[in-house]
Design a protein around this nucleic acid. Structure first.
Length: 119
DNA sequence: CGGCTGACGAAAA
DNA sequence: CTTTTCGCCAGCC
Protein backbone atom coordinates (compact mmCIF):
# COMPACT_ATOMS: atom_id res chain seq x y z
CA UNK A 1 0.00 0.00 0.00
CA UNK A 2 1.41 3.35 -1.01
CA UNK A 3 2.11 6.02 1.54
CA UNK A 4 -0.25 8.31 -0.27
CA UNK A 5 -3.14 5.96 -0.13
CA UNK A 6 -2.49 5.26 3.50
CA UNK A 7 -2.50 8.96 4.21
CA UNK A 8 -5.76 9.37 2.38
CA UNK A 9 -7.24 6.71 4.51
CA UNK A 10 -5.91 8.23 7.70
CA UNK A 11 -7.34 11.62 6.83
CA UNK A 12 -10.61 10.09 5.89
CA UNK A 13 -10.92 8.22 9.13
CA UNK A 14 -10.01 11.14 11.30
CA UNK A 15 -12.20 13.47 9.39
CA UNK A 16 -15.18 11.21 9.37
CA UNK A 17 -15.35 10.96 13.13
CA UNK A 18 -14.71 14.64 13.70
CA UNK A 19 -17.33 15.57 11.13
CA UNK A 20 -19.88 13.26 12.68
CA UNK A 21 -19.40 14.84 16.08
CA UNK A 22 -19.40 18.27 14.54
CA UNK A 23 -22.62 17.78 12.62
CA UNK A 24 -24.37 16.20 15.58
CA UNK A 25 -23.47 19.18 17.73
CA UNK A 26 -25.12 21.42 15.14
CA UNK A 27 -28.48 19.70 15.39
CA UNK A 28 -30.87 22.25 16.91
CA UNK A 29 -32.93 21.32 19.96
CA UNK A 30 -36.32 19.93 19.11
CA UNK A 31 -35.01 18.44 15.89
CA UNK A 32 -33.31 15.17 14.97
CA UNK A 33 -31.50 13.60 12.06
CA UNK A 34 -30.58 10.15 10.83
CA UNK A 35 -27.33 8.24 10.56
CA UNK A 36 -27.78 7.95 6.83
CA UNK A 37 -28.29 11.70 6.41
CA UNK A 38 -25.05 12.39 8.25
CA UNK A 39 -23.20 9.74 6.29
CA UNK A 40 -24.52 11.17 3.05
CA UNK A 41 -23.53 14.67 4.11
CA UNK A 42 -20.03 13.45 4.84
CA UNK A 43 -19.78 11.76 1.48
CA UNK A 44 -20.19 8.13 2.60
CA UNK A 45 -23.72 7.45 1.43
CA UNK A 46 -23.49 3.85 2.51
CA UNK A 47 -21.52 4.62 5.64
CA UNK A 48 -24.49 4.97 7.94
CA UNK A 49 -23.18 2.12 10.06
CA UNK A 50 -19.97 3.95 10.68
CA UNK A 51 -21.92 6.99 11.81
CA UNK A 52 -23.75 4.86 14.33
CA UNK A 53 -20.52 3.26 15.32
CA UNK A 54 -18.89 6.66 15.69
CA UNK A 55 -21.75 7.77 17.86
CA UNK A 56 -21.33 4.70 20.01
CA UNK A 57 -17.83 5.94 20.67
CA UNK A 58 -19.15 9.39 21.53
CA UNK A 59 -19.70 8.47 25.15
CA UNK A 60 -16.20 9.80 25.78
CA UNK A 61 -16.78 12.92 23.69
CA UNK A 62 -18.48 15.85 25.45
CA UNK A 63 -21.38 17.85 24.04
CA UNK A 64 -22.76 15.13 21.84
CA UNK A 65 -26.58 15.18 21.79
CA UNK A 66 -26.75 11.57 20.72
CA UNK A 67 -30.46 11.45 21.49
CA UNK A 68 -31.06 13.65 18.44
CA UNK A 69 -29.71 10.99 16.12
CA UNK A 70 -32.03 8.17 15.15
CA UNK A 71 -32.37 5.88 12.18
CA UNK A 72 -34.05 7.00 8.98
CA UNK A 73 -37.48 5.93 10.21
CA UNK A 74 -37.25 8.10 13.29
CA UNK A 75 -36.91 5.08 15.53
CA UNK A 76 -34.86 5.35 18.72
CA UNK A 77 -32.66 2.36 18.05
CA UNK A 78 -29.99 3.58 20.43
CA UNK A 79 -32.08 3.93 23.57
CA UNK A 80 -30.58 0.76 25.03
CA UNK A 81 -27.19 2.42 25.11
CA UNK A 82 -28.32 5.31 27.27
CA UNK A 83 -28.35 5.38 31.04
CA UNK A 84 -31.80 3.88 30.98
CA UNK A 85 -33.89 2.65 28.03
CA UNK A 86 -36.12 5.69 28.40
CA UNK A 87 -33.50 8.43 28.69
CA UNK A 88 -33.36 9.04 24.98
CA UNK A 89 -37.10 9.44 24.64
CA UNK A 90 -37.35 11.64 27.72
CA UNK A 91 -34.70 14.00 26.40
CA UNK A 92 -36.41 14.28 23.05
CA UNK A 93 -39.80 14.90 24.63
CA UNK A 94 -38.21 17.52 26.88
CA UNK A 95 -37.21 19.33 23.71
CA UNK A 96 -40.67 19.12 22.24
CA UNK A 97 -40.31 16.06 20.04
CA UNK A 98 -43.27 13.70 20.04
CA UNK A 99 -42.14 10.14 20.66
CA UNK A 100 -44.39 7.12 20.78
CA UNK A 101 -43.41 3.48 20.93
CA UNK A 102 -39.75 4.40 20.43
CA UNK A 103 -40.57 6.26 17.28
CA UNK A 104 -40.68 9.98 16.57
CA UNK A 105 -44.11 11.15 15.44
CA UNK A 106 -44.28 13.50 12.46
CA UNK A 107 -40.75 12.42 11.67
CA UNK A 108 -40.79 14.38 8.45
CA UNK A 109 -41.51 17.51 10.43
CA UNK A 110 -38.69 17.06 12.96
CA UNK A 111 -36.16 15.66 10.54
CA UNK A 112 -33.10 17.86 10.24
CA UNK A 113 -31.14 17.32 7.05
CA UNK A 114 -27.58 18.72 7.25
CA UNK A 115 -27.36 18.88 3.49
CA UNK A 116 -30.34 21.21 3.34
CA UNK A 117 -30.00 23.08 6.61
CA UNK A 118 -26.28 23.80 6.45
CA UNK A 119 -26.09 24.50 2.76
C1' DC B 1 -3.34 -11.52 9.83
C1' DG B 2 -8.35 -13.18 9.11
C1' DG B 3 -12.90 -13.16 10.35
C1' DC B 4 -16.86 -11.30 12.82
C1' DT B 5 -19.57 -7.55 14.55
C1' DG B 6 -22.42 -3.41 14.53
C1' DA B 7 -26.76 3.28 17.20
C1' DC B 8 -27.70 1.76 9.34
C1' DG B 9 -29.62 1.84 4.65
C1' DA B 10 -30.66 1.00 -0.09
C1' DA B 11 -31.34 -2.21 -3.68
C1' DA B 12 -32.27 -6.73 -5.28
C1' DA B 13 -34.86 -11.01 -5.11
C1' DC C 1 -45.43 -7.01 0.85
C1' DT C 2 -40.92 -9.61 3.33
C1' DT C 3 -36.22 -11.36 3.28
C1' DT C 4 -31.54 -11.27 1.70
C1' DT C 5 -27.40 -9.16 0.22
C1' DC C 6 -24.03 -5.82 -0.01
C1' DG C 7 -21.54 -1.58 1.16
C1' DC C 8 -19.36 0.88 4.79
C1' DC C 9 -14.89 0.48 8.10
C1' DA C 10 -12.95 0.68 13.03
C1' DG C 11 -12.25 -2.45 16.81
C1' DC C 12 -12.11 -6.84 18.94
C1' DC C 13 -10.73 -11.80 19.31
Amino acid sequence: MSARKQEEKRESNNDFFQNVYDVVRLIPAGRATSYGAIASYLGSKRGARQVGWAMGSSYNVPNIPAHRVVNKEGVLTARQLFETPTTMQEKLEAEGVEVKDDQIQNWNKYFWDPEKELT
